[in-house]
């Protein structure tokens, strides 16, 4: 018995073979409902994984090639140290551009915490310098040493300290989503195997009689494989459709980086859930085939 033969039989169909093996209502309902539920969950696992991926990429891109230099110095020295830092940066390989934030920009940064009436000029607020890196990047340790010599009040923050855990967390979440997807497929396979074994046990007499009149194992197995594969495909298609609708109805992310509101698919990612019914059908095909052949081998 070849898998290719099974696949061809699956596509061609065999009405007579379908009649020989009677339908078992419980196994049919179980495999349909299980496939639908698992596909629904798989859509969410996929959405979680893809949203995590997008978030990780966004955080990574936004922060990876930028850094900040904070200059804390007495008011009289602040301007001089700022010029010194910018001069150092101009001469540093790997620095694409650097500029000091204006008072208005610094005020805008602080506004969420201190309100719009903050008197920036009257407060000893550090000067911030935004640095953009080239693709190669700069030597962070070397730059720190030069800044310490030229502008003692300057502190370099390359965002690595807090960027790395966030990107790692998003990456892990993405991995978790894919692992969940694999587990869901595994659980679907296990459920279909149990349902197939139940159907095979319920049809033991049919199998025995058909063997007695000359049916090959492949003929008997195909009837079960075809039925369970189509059930898994049907159930998973329904579950996937429902899952996609549910994801579509989730609140939109807008321009924010909020994870919960960003859960979903973007653009061509909406095509990915369509793979789920196919994967469910392949899983059911393999699970039923293995279960059927194992059961048949136990019968003379």
């Amino acid at each position: 018995m070849t898998a290719l033969g099974d696949i061809l039989a699956l596509l061609e169909g065999d009405a007579q073979a379908d009649r020989v093996v009677p339908r078992t209502g419980q196994a049919a309902r179980l495999s349909l409902a299980t496939s639908a539920a698992m596909a629904f969950l798989a859509v969410f696992a996929m959405a979680l994984s893809m949203a995590s991926g997008r978030l990780a990429d966004r955080w990574s891109d936004a922060l990876a090639r930028s850094s900040t230099i904070r200059i804390s110095a007495p008011a009289a020295e602040l301007e001089a140290q700022t010029w010194a830092v910018l001069t150092v940066l101009e001469q540093t390989p790997g620095v694409e551009s650097a500029r000091a934030l204006t008072d208005e920009e610094q005020q805008a940064l602080l506004e969420p915490w201190f309100g719009p009436e903050l008197p920036v000029d009257d407060l000893p607020i550090p000067r911030l310098i935004e640095v953009s890196e080239t693709a190669e990047g700069y030597d962070g340790d070397g730059l720190r040493q030069r800044l310490a010599a030229e502008a003692p009040g300057a502190v370099l923050d390359d965002h690595t300290r807090w960027r790395r855990p966030l990107v790692e967390a998003a990456g892990r979440l993405r991995l978790l989503g894919w692992v969940s997807l694999v587990l869901i497929l595994g659980a679907t396979g296990a459920m279909v195997t149990l349902a197939a074994q139940s159907a095979l046990a319920a049809n033991e007499q049919v199998i025995r009689v058909t063997r007695l009149v000359g049916a090959r194992d492949s003929y008997i197995a195909r009837a079960f494989v075809r039925r369970f594969t189509l059930r898994a495909l049907t159930g998973a298609s329904a579950g996937t459709a429902l899952g996609m609708v549910a994801v579509l109805l989730l609140p939109g992310a807008g321009d924010s980086d909020s994870f919960l509101t960003g859960l979903g698919f973007a653009g061509s990612q909406w095509l990915w859930p369509l793979v789920i019914p196919v994967l469910a059908a392949i899983t059911a095909f393999i699970a039923t085939r293995v279960a059927a052949l194992r059961t048949l081998r136990g019968l003379q």
């Binding site: 007499q205 009689v209 007695l212 009149v213 000359g214 090959r216 194992d217 081998r297």
Partner: peptide, 23 residues
């Protein structure tokens, strides 16, 4: 197993309890 199946196509058997598919 396939050989047994093919053989049974050449040997007709009337079983004591007939062995039908009742459906």
């Amino acid at each position: 197993r396939d050989g047994v199946a093919d053989l049974r196509r050449r040997i007709g058997v009337v079983h004591q309890d007939c062995q039908f598919l009742d459906h």
